[in-house]
């Protein structure tokens, strides 16, 4: 089945990912993403009626650790890769919630 994304859907996904595209990029991604979806869509052709639903590919469950503390990362290392820092904090542009 042909899956064709609309330009509006591309813009929505871009907004969610905080990306801004030029119009020609929007069209390019529309085509590329459509092709990817079409490809993945082929999985639907398989008969899965006898397969148990799964949320995880690894056959493991209940992997847990004991409630014990370990030393943390020294703060100079914590902030070493921060683009900006001040007074032990990461400094970032203020963003209004939403």
């Amino acid at each position: 089945m042909e899956h064709t994304l609309s330009l509006e859907e591309v813009r929505h996904v871009a907004r969610l990912a905080r990306l801004v595209f030029k119009p020609e990029e929007e069209e390019m991604f529309r085509q590329q993403l459509s092709r990817i979806l079409d490809h993945v869509q082929r999985l639907n052709e398989l008969d899965t009626s006898r397969v148990q639903p799964t949320f995880h590919v690894v056959p493991l469950k209940n992997v847990m650790r004991r409630d014990e503390t370990r030393p943390c990362l020294p703060r100079d290392e914590v902030l070493a890769n921060a683009p900006d820092a001040q007074g032990g904090f990461f400094r970032v542009p203020k963003i209004t919630e939403g």
Partner: peptide
């Protein structure tokens, strides 16, 4: 709890910023 949910950093309140991280 003593440690965080997915790592072994302590959970104490009121520590110097970014000293309980990994």
């Amino acid at each position: 709890t003593k440690s965080k949910i997915f790592c072994s950093c302590p959970t104490e309140f009121g520590k110097e910023p970014n000293t309980q991280v990994c």
